[in-house]
Nucleic acid binder design. Structure first.
Length: 297
DNA sequence: GGGTGAATAT
DNA sequence: AATATTCACC
């Protein structure tokens, strides 16, 4: 149990919609193969222009249940291509193979997920941080290489923007909070700002010593579907994220055999940064996270 | 041929 | 704006 966890968790709890408001997610995020395997009816039955797809209450999707313990690399999903397909034409498709044409729901990069991402990148080093590797290191169930690649692209952009700024102003200060505080774009990407950027990210060319960090005891994620579904009809809907609500499950599968995971497994003393947040209030009254790098020991 | 990265699309 | 998908290239 990391204290940081409880921290953001508290904050998250506030934002989270009440269970009743939650999007009745269901097979939408069930992978095609899984859908077939479990004989789950097609999600896209009546695609009428009228709100509300009668879905059963939010029950955890198969992914998070208890069986498939394998990391992403598995055939949990593939849906390589999907042309037009189901989409609107969902007329006759009803029982055979809608699965093949199912679209994975958009991945929602939650702060937690992003954190893992950053950690992975940090431990890999910028040079080795490529989508596939990152994905493996994160070992988040359901995460695809494409997901990571897309996110990585944006993250690099973010880093660049930061380099440019930290270069001429602050004087070494590169914490998101500080940047926004120093007058930088308030547009400090909300998500990215939620995770501290390791120093060496901004100073390419110098070896980083993060490699030996044990990384986080994966158990925290993995079996929570990392994504939230966006309603097929996409109409009026409150935010839908019903991911990590319940913790406390550790898949017995020892998928710690990454080439990067040093056998020098130090005690799970992972906490490179302190996520100690101070409920600060920016000038405009907006709440800003003042998380700052714990630097390091 | 798989992966990556940048562009482009939704 | 955030993610996804495409695509040229290695």
């Amino acid at each position: 149990m990391r204290e940081e966890d409880s921290n953001w968790f508290s904050k998250w709890a506030e934002e989270l919609p009440s269970p009743e408001e939650l999007m009745p997610l269901s097979q939408s995020l069930i992978t095609p193969d899984l859908a077939i395997a479990f004989n789950i009816p097609s999600p896209q039955q009546a695609l009428h222009h009228h709100h509300h797809t009668p879905q059963p209450p939010p029950q955890h999707p198969p992914q998070s249940t208890a069986h498939s313990s394998q990391p992403n690399s598995s055939a949990e999903f593939d849906s390589p291509e999907l042309s037009g397909a189901g989409g609107g034409g969902g007329g006759g498709t009803g029982s055979d193979e809608p699965a093949r044409t199912l679209k994975r729901p958009r991945l929602v990069w939650t702060p937690q997920l992003h954190k893992r991402f950053v950690d992975a990148v940090a431990h890999l080093g910028i040079k080795n941080a490529v989508p596939k590797t990152i994905m493996q290191l994160m070992s988040v169930d359901g995460l695809t290489r494409e997901n990571v690649a897309s996110h990585l692209q944006k993250y690099r952009l973010y880093l660049k923007r930061m380099q440019g700024i930290s270069n001429g102003g602050g004087g070494g200060n590169n914490s998101p909070a500080a940047l926004s505080a120093s007058g930088m774009d308030p547009a400090t990407d909300h998500l990215f700002a939620s995770s501290p950027v390791p120093a060496h990210f901004l100073h390419p060319g110098r070896p980083n010593s993060d490699h030996f960090l044990p990384f986080v005891p994966v158990a925290a994620m993995q079996h929570h579907h990392p994504m939230a579904v966006v309603p097929p009809g996409g109409h009026h809907h409150p935010q839908l994220q019903q991911q990590f609500r319940h913790f406390g499950n550790s898949p017995p599968n020892g998928q710690f055999d990454h080439p990067f995971m040093r056998q020098s497994q130090q005690p799970a003393q992972r906490t490179p940064y302190a996520e100690e947040v101070e409920p600060a209030t920016a000038k405009n009254g907006r709440k800003v996270l003042t998380l700052f790098p714990n630097g390091d020991d």
